[in-house]
Write a protein that binds this DNA or RNA. Structure first.
Lengths: 339, 339
DNA sequence: ATAATAAAATGAAACGGTTCATTGAACCGA
DNA sequence: TCGGTTCAATGAACCGTTTCATTTTATTAT
């Protein structure tokens, strides 16, 4: 491995000068710049990131922590993050927290000791309102998708309320009356917001009723169970608003098992527009969330914060709060009834 | 940030001794081990990975390069990799090559300068038979999923031949005669193998004919186009073997557009068992590939190779070649005809 | 009690860069 | 010609570890 010393020796200049050339400092004469650059090219020298990290205290590594690395949502986001970081010559450290707070904490700590310059985290939601470590970290952190009470950090979230409201309103507009919501886990701000959006749209038309809310976990299995439960309890359900496409998947299976048709007997709207939704039969009408762009946005926020921190080492501007707009993606899983 | 020096000073011992305690060396007396450990615990000290990397030349970072970070296949594999590495306290550097050779090369170089200890790569296939950089890298490398001619590296692949053979044989067994294959991209060893598996199964029953092979790219869009083309050219297609679930997705859409039913009119078998396949209607019969376990396996191979290299610095055993077994996952997209 | 040996602890060099106070050369005006 | 100023280049200190030759301490045999 070629080192800066060899470059210095061969080009007959000092290590300091070579370093200045590498970093584009303007204090080097044109002659020497060229001379050094030639040697660098000839030897194929690239400065070691490790050494440079140690002395400059900037690693160029960003840590990413998501609950599940393989989730269709997050992997889309990771792609956005990864491509954006790459443009800036930065590396990404990826880890999955498995939605487990202890693991998240240990991952964060581990990353701190790997000296990441910044962190993008989709935080575990069950944390008993303890901002804890998230507020204490001394490096820039951007939170994505889930807002944690009491945590003062840059944030990129979706407008879950509006998305749910729109989805529900769309069902109502198409003349559905008895609409249930498969609400997703409690303790999760984003899922709560979806319930509220649902509730608000329903109440506006006097359709709301607490018994229409069925909570379940964020998975197809849980959606499957909840849908069966709903079908058992309630008669004549017109439509289902599943607050996640994953939940919708399970619900669809359950509905079919009862011999009901979609959208003939029951309409369904999902939330999230995962990769597969448009390939389902019928293609799932759902709320689309721009995860790729969310990843990109999170990175810009992070880089912005990092450069700010470097310029004014003690300056802390208010945390940003960026809201990505959800969009109703109309496909075929809702029966369009004319009034 | 607490450093090893402070730990040394406070515990009244030398830096070297503290380092030995950290690394579990047996040359430290029990008394001092305890003393140091206490100070470490009290101060919450953790050695900096950066510093330790620089001096030991082991970073504990592994590079992962896949064509597409968000692909359902690879994100599953990444999960397997990530969870296995984590157990060993190792970090993962993730990047997407976008199936572009130049990008792959530059990613690899970049990782080299970040001093990763090892690399797991799903290589770009279009490389004009140039092993190139892959053979030259001085660190352990494990290739996954795609075999590149002339590259002598540890490898984890699927038995694409057998999978395709089984899928085709299954169709034949169920009394399908006119079976086409949507073959996926050329230049790709894994897709070629699938064609060969298809061909062999067909030939055994005298059913093969070159006109049954339709090549397309690895995407639903391309599968959609190829299926339409096939439907235009050929009459009475009994069944389709799509050499990827993604291709199957497109094919299904095309088949439906022609007013045909699955599996009533045409049966279809996919390849890959992506996340969504079991949720399709009808659920897609497909070849399942254990991507999660493939990730795990790649990691063990890599770690094995790394420790080998550390023990005998010049020792090079033959590259391993692990074949993960594909499995036919029977669902509902094939019409089961009794003969 | 002493020499020989084993075990434990030390501390400086090394890893490969960055940074910055210092030096040296070049230039300018008087 | 000399003092002052500017611009380049230097090289040593530093970042936080590991490593290993050397020194110190403890143990054992005589």
């Amino acid at each position: 491995m070629v080192t800066i010393k060899e470059v210095a020796k061969i080009s007959g200049l000092s290590v300091g000068t070579v370093s200045n050339v590498i970093n584009g400092l303007e204090t080097v004469s044109e002659t020497n710049k060229k001379k050094v650059q030639e040697v660098i090219d000839r030897l194929g020298f690239k400065p070691s990131r490790i050494a440079s990290s140690l002395s400059s205290k900037k690693t160029g590594n960003m840590g990413i922590i998501v609950p599940d690395v393989s989730s269709p949502f997050y992997s889309e986001m990771i792609k956005g993050i990864s491509e954006t970081l790459e443009i800036n010559g930065l590396n990404i450290f990826l880890s999955g927290s498995n939605d487990n707070l202890d693991k998240e904490t240990s991952l964060i700590k581990n990353m701190m000791y790997s000296w990441v310059d910044g962190l993008i985290i989709v935080p575990v939601y069950e944390r008993e309102n303890e901002p804890g470590i998230l507020n204490e970290l001394k490096i820039p952190v951007v939170l994505v998708n889930r807002e944690i009470r009491g945590v003062k950090r840059d944030l990129v979230v979706f407008n879950n309320f509006k998305g749910a409201y729109n989805a529900t309103a769309y069902l109502i507009k198409n003349n559905h009356k008895k609409i249930i919501i498969l609400s997703g886990p409690k303790h999760s701000r984003s899922f709560e917001d979806r319930v509220i959006g649902f509730k608000e749209a329903m109440e506006e038309k006097g359709l709301y009723d607490g018994s229409l809310v069925f909570s379940c976990k964020y998975s197809e299995k849980s959606g499957y169970g909840a849908m069966h439960k709903a079908l058992g309890k309630l008669q004549n359900i017109d439509a289902v608003f599943a607050s996640s496409d994953l939940i919708a998947l399970g619900a669809i299976a359950a509905i079919r098992e009862r011999g009901l048709e979609i959208p003939g007997d029951i309409s369904i709207v999902g939330f999230g527009d995962i990769y597969l939704s448009k390939y389902l039969n019928p293609p799932l009408t759902t709320i689309k969330r721009p995860f790729y762009n969310t990843g990109k946005t999170a990175v810009s926020l992070l880089l912005e914060r990092i450069s700010q921190q470097r310029k004014f080492s003690d300056f802390k501007s208010e945390p940003a709060r960026i809201i990505m707009q959800d969009l109703l993606e109309v496909r075929k899983s809702v029966k369009v009834k004319s009034v």
